[in-house]
Nucleic acid binder design. Structure first.
Lengths: 233, 233
DNA sequence: TCGGTCTAGTGGTATGACATTATCTCCTAG
DNA sequence: CTAGGAGATAATGTCATACCACTAGACCGA
């Protein structure tokens, strides 16, 4: 009956207004917002207020602020990596166990395999093989980088040719979440096993064999997720 | 050799410091940060700088700021909705199509069904039935709320008893994403169809029938995603 | 006991100044 | 004629101070 009369923060109102412009498409990636001083005039507020609004927009990844002449606030064109980081933040700051995250990851990485099999092009398969070969020779030289398995899984997701899925998988391999999901495999032995399994997986994809690909990936995920299983292997 | 001493922004340094305390667990949800004026003293910076840092933390959903006596910045455990909104903003700017998002959603919501079937308790099933009944009677009264289907799907995800999965599904149903994935179903007729399908889905879950549950859900997702399909039904 | 007033503490905003940084312009030396 | 450097310029980054609005709790009176 009586609606709440809450005149929130002025800075929040500015944030909302800018977001609205973004949603309406009247501000597109690459556009430059007016300078802080000019925004003050237009909104009729002080510079502090405008700056706080810009900070919020920047923290949300919507704008990019540059200093110096020709500087200012520029609307960003978000990359899937940025979005993935946001998702990773969400997952990392909440009370999740490693098992929770691993299970969610399994759902996605196994669920996309039919799509991967259906859509992977010859270039995709070749790129995957090249990646495994490069990683294998890196291992032979004793160079193990923790991002290597992440790169592989991300490339597999790219085979779906669906940027949303790609972004989802990448978010699970963000640096923040790595300690949760792939810690046990950083040992060289685990790396070798990983390479073999990756190759077997690619073979299944090339053969368009959904069942086998899922089976290989299921085992791979299971092994890399559980230390004791890895110790036995 | 000489590492960059680019101490970019002072406010960002404060943000990082607080985030570190959060990650170390030295600040827990419910704790209250010192007042702005006290933080100024401790960090040796001005109040504006402290406030910008607090804005960033607030925008990230890490703290909650209250005014008045006994007010201040309180550490909060971020909910999926808060960060899901930020995520949705980014998604709007990204080159994702509705089809991309829908497909990603299908992978997850179909992939979790085996988990749902395996783990749903009697309470879960009862809660789902109650929800459908409540939504049906709301429809009969002519009240259709767009968040209704989102609530249902989120509750289904909760049946996995895995908070990571729950959060993932919720983020797909963030208010700003709804127009992308469930727009065609806002019409009353679509709502009725939705209720029937929801009921059929619950029956399959209660019968522990993975195949049937997946089949019902697949059709449901397919119908709500494509306007022309809906028009024919 | 109930209701109002007072008050101290806190965030919200305004103003004005100066510092820092990156880009552009132009001038000068070779 | 070209390359490089010294300003000019325009924007963000930071500071200090002041005042306002709001809220919780203490206090007080009928």
């Amino acid at each position: 009956m009586f609606k709440a009369v809450s005149l929130n923060r002025v800075s929040q109102a500015i944030v909302d207004q800018v977001k609205l412009l973004l949603r309406q498409g009247r501000l597109k990636p690459g556009d430059r917002l007016p300078s802080e001083r000019e925004l003050c005039e237009r909104f009729g507020v002080s510079r502090v207020t405008v700056r706080e609004a810009l900070r919020v927009l920047e923290a949300g990844g919507l704008i990019d602020i540059r200093v110096g002449a020709r500087g200012g606030a520029f609307v960003t064109s978000p990359t899937s990596r940025q979005i993935g980081e946001g998702l990773a933040d969400l997952l990392h700051l909440s009370p999740l166990t490693a098992a929770d995250v691993t299970e969610a990851r399994q759902v996605i990485e196994l669920g996309i395999i039919p799509l991967v099999v259906a859509r992977a092009t010859d270039q995709d398969v070749t790129a995957l093989r090249d990646m495994v070969r490069a990683q294998q020779s890196a291992l032979d030289r004793g160079e193990y980088v923790v991002s290597m398995p992440a790169d592989f899984h991300a490339r597999v997701a790219a085979c779906t040719h669906n940027p949303a899925i790609e972004m989802l998988v990448q978010s699970f391999h963000s640096p923040l979440l790595m300690p949760l999901i792939e810690a046990p495999v950083v040992a060289p032995l685990g790396g070798y096993h990983g390479s073999e399994e990756h190759s077997a997986f690619i073979d299944a994809i090339a053969a368009r064999d959904v069942e086998r690909a899922q089976s290989v990936m299921r085992e791979h995920l299971h092994r890399t997720a559980e230390p004791e299983t890895y110790a036995v292997s």
